[in-house]
Write a protein that binds this DNA or RNA. Sequence first.
RNA 1: GCUCCUGUGGCGAAAUUGGCAUACGCGGCAGACUUAAAAUCUGUUUUUUUGCGGGUUCAAAUCCCGCCAGGAGUACCA
Length: 853
Amino acid sequence: MESRYNPADIEAKWQRTWEETGLARTPDKSAKPKFYALSMFPYPSGNLHMGHVRVYTIADVIGRLKRMQGYRVLNPMGWDAFGLPAENAAIERGIHPAKWTYQNIAQMKGQLQKLGIAFDWEREVTTCAPDYYKWTQWIFLQFFQAGLAYQKEAAVNWDPIDQTVLANEQVDNEGRSWRSGAIVERKLLKQWFLKITDYAEQLLNDLDKLTGWPERVKLMQANWIGKSTGAYLEFPIVGLEDKIGVFTTRPDTVCGVTYVVLAPEHPLTPKVTTPERKAAVEAFIAEIASQSETDRTAEDKPKRGIPTGGVAINPFTGEEIPIWIADYVLYEYGTGAVMGVPAHDVRDFKFAKENQLPVKVVIAPSGEDGSKTLEAAYTEPGIMVNSGQFNGIPSESGKMAVITEAEKQGGGKARVQYRLRDWLISRQRYWGAPIPMIHCPSCGTVPVPEADLPVRLPEDVEFSGRGASPLAKLDNWVQVPCPSCGEPARRETDTMDTFIDSSWYFLRYTDAKNESQPFDKAVVNDWMPVDQYVGGIEHAILHLLYSRFFTKVLRDRGLLNCDEPFQRLLTQGMVQAMTYKNPVTGKYIPPAKVNPSNPKDPDTGEDLEVFYEKMSKSKYNGIDPLEVLAKYGADTARMFILFKAPPEKDLEWDDADVEGQYRFLNRVWRLASEFTGQLPTKSINLDKLTKAEKDLRRATHTAIKEITADLEGEYQFNTAISELMKLSNALADTSSKQSPVYAEGIKTLILLLAPFAPHVAEELWQNLGGTGSVHEQSWPEFDPDALVLDEITLVIQVMGKTRGTIQVPADADKAALEKFARESEIAQRYLGDAEIKKVIVVPGKLVNFVVGK
RNA sequence: GCUCCUGUGGCGAAAUUGGCAUACGCGGCAGACUUAAAAUCUGUUUUUUUGCGGGUUCAAAUCCCGCCAGGAGUACCA
């Protein structure tokens, strides 16, 4: 056996061997239980970064563990390959998006393979390949047939740099594009939408089924869906037939309405405006329209609005109330109009104070009559007052009473409102799946027949980076006969949001080569749902919500059976590295130019701020995985990443800790190299073990127990590895290296190490004469008898304070424990002749004496 | 503003879920080996204490209340 641990040699060798023997290939259906381990597939940028290393390592450990535990495992990999960067490369460097993308894929695949992840590459999925996007288009047609895909003229988010429309979700809260960072403009265009709002209630309710998801992700989705329960109420307008419909969550406060506010864009705005207010209202609307989203939503911005001159009637009190328009009322939400109840809504209170509108109290805390002047809005529940027939009703039940009355009068009803909007999927871009529709002057919008799929992206395209989509400029591609009437028609030139591609890729993996359908129903039902999904928290809302939506729609189309695609979700933290920043100039300084023990700016001499941040080029703190692999090997990189922090927490890169893991693998290597015995094939004779042997055997079986537990439930790779270290330490320190117990320990250590550091484990396994691959062995099981101690350490406390410990027989009962404790020298010393009022005995742990004062 | 999470040695982190706080690793220090260094090995180090203040309990990092600090999500959602 080679005496030195040389990762470079053994890693390449085993990666080749595993490839040849098909270790990672997904087994055929059998009696074995299935396990679908999935990591979020990458965008093929061309370069692997540490974030990738972390996700795929986590999923790989889980996959390898499950294989050893007797599951047939599916652990696939693919490419989220459509998207803007490829098109930008085409514009900037004149390289075709397809060529650029496939080059990147080849490069990244090579890098990924060096990590030693057991991916089944035979199921590789590439979303920009026609044999994939054919089915993306087919699924779009399913949505269309279900009435879930429709076109709408809409004010959309227009990115002036990328020259495209963005989904609401792709605009950050400063009104900037998630990709280009440009301030987004509003523009009217006819767009394709998917009706995700039809599934809002299910998407919300089924969050309860996701017991294996982090609470905070479920919470973020629930907030995003934003369900509110309330009422739709109508306010008649003086002098008009029209009524103003509002949505409110507080119908119980309706008698306190002192004004109504419309969104400036509301169609009723011009109708209710009186001639003398017309000029002012139009000026106000123009001013709002010219404001960017940023200004309109700026923090602590005062609410601005003006009266229209129009008057509405509160149907519950008969009072005449003014109609205003204001910038804080959003046209897109609810009905685009709100009722103003200054006394019981914080915003309305502020708005009323600023604009001298009356405040009318209609809810009072119990015991009060509502005559007190309010300093702030009273938003708590209370008793209805000044509300005519509703006086005296508690506000919570008053909500229903008001709704019932509104229904009786025909002026309202209960209503549930969601914040979630329909999903805008049109992109005026080339590098995406073409929307398979044809616009015919006589037949209207007609789907491309299934037999004609895929609608291929034409290859001969010019990329200028300006104006309309490159597809719209290709006359010979755009012009087609109408599939329905045969007359000249035009193709839809928009492509689909790439989030569509990633909303069903996990289904395609189950049957990746199917040429006649996106996936076979029996096959997809066999593998789905995904048992463990691993990915970044940045996808907590969009990708995960869209995938859930797709799964439900495809289920309703009869294509699969599951309600939820991802049984368990692990959101791994970022990989951060140390950055140096000059707090005066705000500039980042490359670590190579800084003395770590006394960080100063090399140019100005100023003291630098030192902290951990997500790795990025602009901060000069990126660590190239390939360099780490070259220096230490994949096993060390994996061990470091798994050990340094729990998987969901951010991880701080530290070269010294990487060295530490390298040292550990070297120690394991040495232990195994110096072992001259045989790996045991049958169980050990337990009759006459020495104390040292018993201790070692306990260490071995404790490791099995703890590591197995750490990999079930919550994944705690960091503590699992610390248990490996303990076992390794116990083996190194033992005096019974000739014992079969030692051989069992060595064998167990290698088996337990296998999911974490697969190459070293395999090499050591083979060197010690193990049969077959270490990764095909059964995961070890612990012997409970091995864990039993003859003696335990009993803690002796007085008044809850630990005063010392004694050794006692492990099988002593409560009474015996108390006796040992009372007679102990420690108790004698600390108790003296104090009166013992009570003795608490926790078997196996402690005895606590409660004494009188 | 609202919602949620986190706070433990010099550092990353553990703690069977109420029962010896700091496992495991990093770093530091000392020693062995060496002409010397690296590598390796051995030993040692974090000292009434789990952000702060109260409470419950025989017993609190863990449960409850109130603060403080840091982070995340969301943002006029009626």
